[in-house]
Design a protein around this nucleic acid. Sequence first.
DNA 1: TCAGTATATAACCATTTCGTTATATAAGTC
DNA 2: GACTTATATAACGAAATGGTTATATACTGA
Lengths: 115, 115
Amino acid sequence: METLAKTTAADVTACLKAVSDPTRLLMMKLVETNELCVCQFVEMFGMSQPAISQHLRKLKQAGLVKENRKGQWRFYSLNQDSVHAPLLQNILSHIEEADPQLLALRAKEAPVDCC
Amino acid sequence: METLAKTTAADVTACLKAVSDPTRLLMMKLVETNELCVCQFVEMFGMSQPAISQHLRKLKQAGLVKENRKGQWRFYSLNQDSVHAPLLQNILSHIEEADPQLLALRAKEAPVDCC
DNA sequence: TCAGTATATAACCATTTCGTTATATAAGTC
DNA sequence: GACTTATATAACGAAATGGTTATATACTGA
């Protein structure tokens, strides 16, 4: 029997601060299912590589994503083991798949070796 | 049959920005059931009246709370009619009732006429 | 009308946030 | 080892955030 994972208000705030930025929220939506590497994010968001790296660092420090190194690449994906995972997935479920911003990003997703 | 209210990523971000502050998140938790007036928040949070007013303004501008004027007092409560209400209540449900911060605030709740 | 109380707004300041450019680190290739 | 590619970190600046104090507004009651 599943019970709702409960946390303190401070925990919830920490999670919310991490995803209350439009770029980071969309990043989390994108890695909800797939894993993506830094260079893919750079392509999709049209943002500088350091900007992307810094967003990912915040998400990682909050425990929301996990890192998976493959050669020179670092892939990021949703960290299911986080205490925040249930809340996070709850939040992400409120974003409609038809959101134009989200669709536009997904349209720019390219295979890794192209970077 | 209830279907999950879906919104754009921008909508979700707007809601999250409003409640990603520790004071405002706790404010929302407090008005989830009760309605509270400004002077009660001031007492509970031990913060200046303008600071409280400004937090409430942000919550109101995001549509998360509604205002109810009674004489000189303005009571705030969760706005059930907001597009954000389902997401918001989802978020609030992740805060445990036993959270010491929350309990401490509730312990300071005083009747209105005392202010 | 005047005084008191409740709340909002304005002006200001310190800190944080989010981007940039420049540079460092680490892995892959020749 | 030298060169390229992928990523991280450092340093910096503009804008946003969240608090303060001072002041304005609005309702209450004598």
